[in-house]
């Protein structure tokens, strides 16, 4: 799912009464065509529904937002999202460790 789709779902999740399409059009930096296609895709996936120019999340849409953690606001810091496989044991303060030589200052090595 594209980031703009996720953002649309997040915005709808925060709005209990849903949002007017025009509100989303003003909020997002996309053209009418892009918004039209985006909404149609989400309607087809039954995640949102449209009534009189207003969009709301369906119950499936609410489930999707909750289960995929779209409700957690991102800090925008990529180091907050390091995959598990790259995480090792956290070392203690003042514990010795062996540095990776290419990343070590040359004056220390000499």
């Amino acid at each position: 799912m594209s980031s703009i789709s996720k953002r649309l779902l997040q915005d709808l999740f925060k709005s209990s009464e849903g949002l007017f399409i025009f509100t989303l059009y003003q909020r997002f930096n996309i053209s009418p065509k892009e918004l039209y296609i985006l909404i149609n895709e989400l309607v087809e996936k039954k995640l949102i529904k449209e009534e009189e120019d207003r969009l709301t999340l369906t119950s499936e849409g609410k489930d999707y937002v909750i289960k995929t953690d779209l409700t957690i606001k991102s800090t925008g810091n990529k180091y907050d999202k390091i995959p598990d496989k790259f995480l090792g044991r956290r070392i203690e303060i003042n514990e010795f460790y062996l540095p990776t030589s290419p990343n070590t200052r040359t004056d220390i090595l000499n």
Partner: peptide, 17 residues
């Protein structure tokens, strides 16, 4: 895009859709 945003009101967007 911003020029277009200013140019289209709510009723027009609904008609475009």
């Amino acid at each position: 895009m911003s020029k277009l945003k200013k140019h289209i009101n709510r009723e027009e967007l609904s008609k475009i859709f």
